[in-house]
Amino acid sequence: MTRLRGRGISAVNYPTGMNLGGDPSQALIHATTTGNFVVTLSSVDLGQGLRTIMTQIAAEVLGVPPESVIIDTADTDTGPHCMGTFASRATHRIGNAIIMAATEARNALLDVAGEELEVAAADLETDGDGRIAVKGVPGKSISVLDAALAAHFKYGRTISGRGIYLKPRSYPDFETGAMDPDSCQAHACTIAEVEVDTETGEVRVLKLTSAYEIGRALNPMMVEQQIVGGSWMGMSHALYETTEPYYPDRAHGPVDFAEYLMPGPADIPQYDAVILERPSASGPFGAKGIGEMTANSPIPAIANAIFDACGVRIDELPITPEKLLRALDAAAVAPRR
């Protein structure tokens, strides 16, 4: 039995959003009588943390505490239009739509507060903690709650905002084929360290070290979550997930997810994640998308590490023990020069 170690590297540029026939998403915001702000979206949180990020963005722009933001992603039949949660687009598209909606709602809020305090709205500032004060005169202030109540019951106004972000359709240039398919690109580099067992064909990933340049990490803890979870998923795609082989026929293959192989807690490598920030001009607070690319960059890094370890180049995923042993056998018959 021989165990060979190898190291491989990959580099990825990944688009944020896509183009198709144009890529819009909308957000609507309104204040309740209690001074909470409801952000209505049709975008869905799959566990990646969309609700948290959208709460942060809305609170930041409105100038209110995150606790007073309610994200309502209830129903795509009745909500404002969203193209969906895919293409690593949600933070960028919906975040920008929320910035637009929250800016309008904030202006409406400050208009009411200005009337109540008998000052111009432009002279007001929010403390991010539920109060609106005259700039430089913290004693002269009104709570967001009282401003919301006044809007509803005294002035008969809504404190609300409409937002949309559209990445317009880009047609390829007839002569050159050039086009503008995405809004920005995030970048990543992954180094994989593996150990290949040349007797069993098994590959163990020892370490995945990744650096991600994602514009601005709006929530660094959740960015790291995406990187670590994506590293695992990339490793799973690279080495495990398949409904093959099956012998002698399909009836003997896995029939459901209970029989579908994925790495468990005993199979994980050491993960190391580094976040780099080069703000994107079009992103909300400079953010780019981090979602999908995290599962992509480990795959070529692992394939390259296997080549480095044992000299065989496998270009079909996943790199199962069977494929590796067959490749090693072929290489032994016709040794590389």
Partner: peptide, 20 residues
């Protein structure tokens, strides 16, 4: 021992490390 105790539980998102 933690890895052993969790080995019958599948997670699709986290990569297990944060759970451990």
């Amino acid at each position: 021992a933690v890895v052993e105790a969790l080995s019958g539980n599948v997670c699709r998102c986290t990569g297990y490390e944060p759970i451990i």
